[in-house]
Design a protein around this nucleic acid. Structure first.
Length: 267
DNA sequence: ATGACGGTGTGGCACCGA
């Protein structure tokens, strides 16, 4: 069972790359962020053709927009955060009826926040609080949970190419990192850090100043799993290869592989 | 300090991202 997350920075532009990537990486579920299109423009037919007939889409015009595309049926689709009013389409959740049992997948495009102290930063912190409450509630449900997406937060200094120079700037503030840590405090585990990883592993690089070639990036796309899934995580990797495409997204996909659950002993 | 790159919308640029 594989689940991936990818901020595509416009699905209209990136659809051919998404289809190519799925052909090479036939994950069970792909979570997309920054669709930048409305639901009526979502390429349902092309994705069904590619083996992904089950989609939970939450789009909007110009900005944001998230979707969960799946080989397996989906149920209990929730758009945005329950009890948190938001004009922006940033979260879609669904229960995946996977062969090894139901999995609750929450796919978020977290707020950027622009600059600490700004109105947008305040929105980011409020949004994070709303998400935290939502995740706490979801964890009380029956299915194991996976929280994926573009978090727009570096978890710690390993996740940034310039920990000193970027100290307390956006994506690096103590407040943001505390919000990330608070999610871990609910019992979630950063799947990527369950394994030895190469130093300077990042999931985003600025389009400017040849940042990708110089590996001046950030790890801000994450996959967190609920406690019951921790023992099932077999691998978690970042696939840098799509960043080498001609017109790439500025983000790379992150993939987690889960082992099948151990069936309970019979009598 | 600013802009650099790329996407969108509607436009001759502004706004946003991270």
């Amino acid at each position: 069972m594989k689940i991936a997350t990818w901020n595509v920075n416009s699905l209209s532009i990136r659809l051919p790359q998404v289809l190519d990537w799925l052909a090479a990486n036939p994950v069970d579920v792909l979570c997309l962020q920054e669709l930048k299109l409305t639901d009526d423009k979502f390429p349902l037919a092309a994705l069904e053709q590619a083996g992904y007939p089950h989609c939970a889409v939450f789009g909007q015009k110009t900005y944001n927009g998230v979707a969960l595309i799946s080989q397996h049926p989906l149920s209990d689709v929730l758009r945005n955060i329950a009890g948190f009013e938001d004009e922006q389409a940033r979260v879609v959740s669904a229960t995946v009826q996977a062969p090894g049992g139901d999995l609750r997948v929450v796919n978020g495009y977290f707020v950027n926040g622009q600059e600490p102290g700004s109105e947008k930063f305040a929105y980011k912190m409020n949004w994070l609080q709303g998400l935290h409450r939502q995740i706490a509630a979801e964890l009380a449900g029956p299915a194991p949970l996976v929280l994926v997406g573009d978090f727009n937060i570096t978890a710690d200094d390993r996740d940034t190419h310039d920990p000193q120079g970027l100290r307390e700037t956006i994506h690096h503030t103590t407040q943001e990192r505390q919000a990330f840590a608070a999610l871990l405090g609910l019992g979630l585990v950063d799947a990527f850090r369950l394994f030895d990883q190469p130093e300077k592993s990042y999931s985003w690089w600025d389009y400017r100043e040849m940042a990708f070639r110089r590996n001046k990036g950030l790890r801000i796309d994450h996959i967190l799993v609920s406690p019951s899934l921790k023992a099932r995580v077999k691998a978690c990797t970042i696939d840098r290869s799509p960043r080498k495409n001609e017109r790439p997204s500025d983000h790379a996909p992150v993939i987690v592989e889960l082992a099948e659950p151990v069936p309970p002993h019979g009598p």
